[in-house]
Nucleic acid binder design. Sequence first.
DNA 1: AAGGTGGATCTGAAATTCATAGTGCCGCTC
DNA 2: GAGCGGCACTATGAATTTCAGATCCACCTT
Lengths: 179, 179
Amino acid sequence: MSASGNDADDDTLCPIAHSTGLVGDRWSILIVRELLLGQSRFQDLQAQTGATSQMLAARLKRLEADGLVERHPYSERPPRHEYRLTPKGRHLMPVILALRTWGEQWCKPQSEQPATRMFHRACGSELELDGKCPACGGLVAWTDMRGQPSEAYAEERARRAADFTDHRRAADAQTQPDR
Amino acid sequence: MSASGNDADDDTLCPIAHSTGLVGDRWSILIVRELLLGQSRFQDLQAQTGATSQMLAARLKRLEADGLVERHPYSERPPRHEYRLTPKGRHLMPVILALRTWGEQWCKPQSEQPATRMFHRACGSELELDGKCPACGGLVAWTDMRGQPSEAYAEERARRAADFTDHRRAADAQTQPDR
DNA sequence: AAGGTGGATCTGAAATTCATAGTGCCGCTC
DNA sequence: GAGCGGCACTATGAATTTCAGATCCACCTT
């Protein structure tokens, strides 16, 4: 089921082994996170994930081969594309949400605000970390949620984008100091 | 927040980056899966995950350092222990369940039976892949579920355990052919 | 005492990942 | 029309990780 070079995960019935065969590494997960957040350009993905360009290129290639990502041209001459999630990729949302919940509950200093607040589309109330709607009193499906990054998190992301172009400019200046 | 050597994931607000810092690799996820399934001994973990012994030892050490796993002696002289999930580790269940759902829906040949069937503890009905209870008509929290491996999957696991001890015996025989 | 078991650790080869540098293409400016 | 700079990669060699396979150690069984 994996179009990439993965193996050893095709000869088992365990669906978790299959999943981790495709997205069982840090970079793939972070890339999917970014794509879900709406980023689509190489540069932005690189800035926000912190992956090296070749890691990113390699992972995107694999994600595309595995059918999670589609390359979508937004300019020919020079050939440029956006990367977008396919339905298969988009359905990783529950995995990302579960990682979010766990990270917020068990890996953060204290209960500072979640980086992204989630709301119930139907009634507008803010959801609990575990996905319960305090108004409707039940678990909400991921398709019925809407996320809103906190101000602090939005700022962090903006800074990362800025730092990235800065750093790049600096490197270029060093490479060609006086030509 | 990571007691292990991980870094680069502590200076962000993103909970997903934090999570993947601790469990963002294939082996850790498979190990957690096994522990959730009730395995606790080194050998069993090795057989079912397919990790090398040193990978397993290293990952268990890291998982322990990060507070996901507890080492629990069941024999001194020689020191032997079981590995058990802490509450922090057990709360990864939703992540594993999400990976399961995705794997069943998008990575398996067809709709063959799920490897593990899930049931609603309250009413006993079998849950949909997406976690809905057909009887109660809503999403069920992970704490209200119970899993039941299919026969085929149980057999696969038994075979893996058997193959592992066989393989080990074979290797030993080769190493010390006639002493 | 010989052999088996469970849980590791060591070693050297193979593969992956990293930092860093460069390339190709184009549009824009001057 | 030459040069500059942005974007999306690719190339390279060093550093790190992972692997297969052997070895070790302390017991236990026979």
